[in-house]
Amino acid sequence: MPNKTFFAFILPSLIAMVLFIALPIVSVVVQSLYVAHERVMVQVENCQPFGGCSTELRVDAAATAELQREQPLGRFNGLGTYFNRAHLATDELGAILSSDRSFDQKVAQIFNLPFYKALIFTLVYCFVVTPLAMALGFAIALAVNALPKVTKGPIIFFSLLPMIITPLIGSLILYWMLSPNGILGATIQHIFNDPTLSLRASPVLTWTALLVYGVWTNGPFSFVVFYAGLQTVPADTLESAMIDGASRWERIRYVIIPHLAPLATFVALVQLMDNFRVFEPIVGFSAEANATSLSYLIYNDLSGDAQQFGSAGATSVITIIGVVILLMPVLIRTWREFKLKAV
């Protein structure tokens, strides 16, 4: 296809992506280098009829607004935002690590730094939910594959629901069931015989609930992909394995799993990317006190009355770097394949 035709076809799409994906990334980087203006203060002399005069500092609202209007980005702060307490917190981290407290205390203190708290949860969510959801999906796929044909359709229908559901709504539904007066929450209190046990009070329960939600909503995707993969397992290989005397488990281990391995890489990649941006469940579960994620930090900076663009920008940049690191193996592999093809 000639260059001219190609670009005529792809231009609208390209413009949309450049304007609303590439440029915002640039904009985020720029924003992260600025912080909000300090308020303009004026000295006001306050004279009272009998008390004489006193001066006091007041916020000059008009001047502040004027400054804000002239330089909407705020004032230049370099990389300052990246290293302050709300982000990488290098000073605090250094102090904690060099102190002579016990390991547990150090962990607890690091956990009190908002960025690390979010980072740790995001990574745990990513690397716990992804493998568990894939294992669940694989198990469902194997089981469904063994069922009679008529039951497959309805089961696939129900299995799709947790995935297709709006993340915020799905997490709200589970949250309501898990609240102390909900069916699951009450049951859990009953099992542990602890009437004060609740999502709000227990970080462990919050984390567990979020991780369970993650597996619940991610499992179906693995299931569908693995199930489709199972349909393409070559019958010849399976049958020759049976003739060679392989047991059920050995057939799964030596025929089915190797056949599905490329699919599994693909599923793992997609799910890692998606789980890294975990956000809605934290809003849905009102979990911010016990668990936050990088995306939630950005959301938190941006919502509310005082929008902290600098802070949100810095977290965004760090998040984007995280995504690129996650993608690195794929990018490197693609690059190598491309090089190979070109030579």
Partner: peptide, 13 residues
């Protein structure tokens, strides 16, 4: 792979 909220933080201003 970009988290949508990171892009949003670039849109607002």
């Amino acid at each position: 792979a970009m988290p949508h909220i990171t892009l949003v933080s670039g849109y607002l201003l």
